[in-house]
Design a protein around this nucleic acid. Structure first.
Lengths: 164, 164
DNA sequence: CTAGGATCTAGAGTCGGCTCTAGGTCAAGT
DNA sequence: ACTTGACCTAGAGCCGACTCTAGATCCTAG
């Protein structure tokens, strides 16, 4: 049905994964591959579809902020084979927690940003043709009780320099 | 009701904003303040509540990934005073777009991560005591049609080294 | 034979955003 | 008088994750 063991050059893998050829060599150097990269005639790297699949996972994990050491650790665990699923699970769960925290922090920031956008739209007389929900989510009560109060002094005063 | 013009030392501002004193001096050097920081006896910096409010905004924008040059541009606009709301709006809208893209990319990555977590939980015989929704959101159809297919070869094969 | 392009290695350079150091001033406490 | 601690300036250093360079090798096409 499908050739599982197609041989790919570094350039082809770069194309398919979105990583640069430099980055691919760098990743190899950093021990991020599960299995050693084979070499063809002339010492050139030969990759398989397995490698591309693994790299695809790597790219996604990197895109969500997993640092290279964690990625290396994960590669190590996978390389060792079955038996360490507990550790892999722990690693993934930790990353999952990091990502969800990241997302919720961004969502919080987005409250302020939306509010600012609303303020400027209003000050321009635009009524934001069909993009905003209702008026603007009140950023003074930003879903989680935080210490920062941007509602009163902050947002209001910050639109003009205090000399005005 | 409230003292609007309280004088704060750099240390106090660091405490209130979460920025380090180093970072505060650095921000000043980089032109990120709306109004020039006053100096007290002995040349020491004197901050007002206005500064703290502005910095609070800065911290949130930074936390959502706005680079310092954009922050500086924004400070410039605010410093110039009324009349450039259009530019401020554009800047904020662009950042808003960046943040929402960021969030949705993270959410996409989270699909894979959750899937992996599910795989390892299953392989350990855990049935994930009350955390997962149902089984796992299918990561092979990740909300937007992307080029990467992690559903078939990827996730499945990557749990064991190819030598197994 | 020659030229072009892809690849190789080892290692240096880049970038953003701070962080830290060195060397000094100043005010308060003992 | 002396120490402590917060502050000052200018500039060097750091970290992560690549990116780029130099100089060599190899393959293919004309």
């Amino acid at each position: 049905m499908a050739e599982v063991a197609a041989s790919l050059s570094i350039g082809q893998v770069a194309e398919r994964t979105g990583l640069s050829v430099h980055a691919l060599r760098f990743y190899e150097h950093e021990g991020l591959f599960v299995n050693p990269v084979r070499r063809g005639p002339g010492g050139r790297r030969v990759y398989s579809q397995h490698d591309v699949d693994w790299l695809t996972v790597c790219v996604i994990l990197r895109a969500s902020g997993m640092p290279l050491p964690a990625l290396r650790r994960y590669a190590d665990l996978v390389r060792q084979g079955a038996g360490n699923e507990g550790e892999r699970l722990a690693l993934m769960r930790e990353h999952q927690a990091n990502v969800t925290t990241q997302i919720s922090k961004l969502a919080e920031s987005l409250d302020l940003i939306r509010f600012k956008v609303g303020v400027y739209e209003d000050s321009l007389g635009l009524d934001s043709a069909g993009d905003r929900q209702c008026h603007a989510p009140a950023p003074s009560a930003p879903s989680h009780p935080t210490e920062i109060r941007i509602g009163h002094a902050g947002v209001g005063l910050m639109n003009t320099p205090p000399g005005g």
